[in-house]
Amino acid sequence: MIAFDLALAAGILLCAVSALTRRDRTASVAAFMVLGLLVALSWVRLAAPDVALAEAAIGAGLTGALFLRAARRLGPLRPAAGRTLAVPAALVASGLGGGLAWVFASASPPAIYAPLVAASLPESGVSNPVTAVLLNFRAWDTLLEIAVLVVALLVANLLGSRRLVPVSLGEMTLPFARIVAPISILLAGHLLWQGSSAPGGAFQAGAVLAGGLLALVLAGLAPTGTLVVRGALIAGLSGLAVFLIAALGSEALTGSLLGYPNRAEKVWIVAIEAALTLSIAATLCLLFTGFEKRKTS
């Protein structure tokens, strides 16, 4: 398998160089998306399927889509003014990279988390350790992470980012959207439910759902009125609201912020995750489609 790892690593580095040096914006974004998929593959090799799912859906898929939108709107890359810093910068960067590789490879973490997770997993209410960490042991991180999504939504709203107006793609795309959207809903539900015992969870499910919604929007099948955008904004905000209310509610019940009541942990976790899935899907969708219809170009 070492040969596969080496080939994968080489492919990853090649894609990164290509994504950061190609002069054609679309080619560079395409290289970035391939990079995301290869990286997801490498994370399967590193025994992190939860992360691989999220990277493929969010890192490669949605980020790539955002980059494509921006590449279209920003226009072609302007030729840079003659700068001669490239060679010294490359030397410094490769020195730094070499140093970091050496430092990271020589450090080996003492096993502190693994035994703690193993000992606490039965009390967490779920059997997938990653979900247990995300929604129980370190749920406060996750709550703040949802807050980051909300603030990004607020900033995009403030900027009045231009709304994506779907061009007519012809009726050949209709069957695609009509099949993909329901499947994505099913898949999101499956990932959400599966997350408590196997790879999956709110983020992966939310990203898949957002993908299905975007297929509908791009095929022109979804309503795009001002009221719909406003509803989506409220839905995007509601995930954090539910999480915060659950945090304070659990404190009222058990005396500890985000300390779920005994033996009811799974109910709390799945309820929070369900709210997060919807809200993440709405947020990611809105971040891609934008808010305001503006006349410029």
């Binding site: 997770v117 129980n136 042991f137 500890s256």
Partner: peptide, 13 residues
Amino acid sequence: AEALGGWAAPLGI
């Protein structure tokens, strides 16, 4: 000092 969710550091926050 408070341990969030009753999970003491280093596992919890």
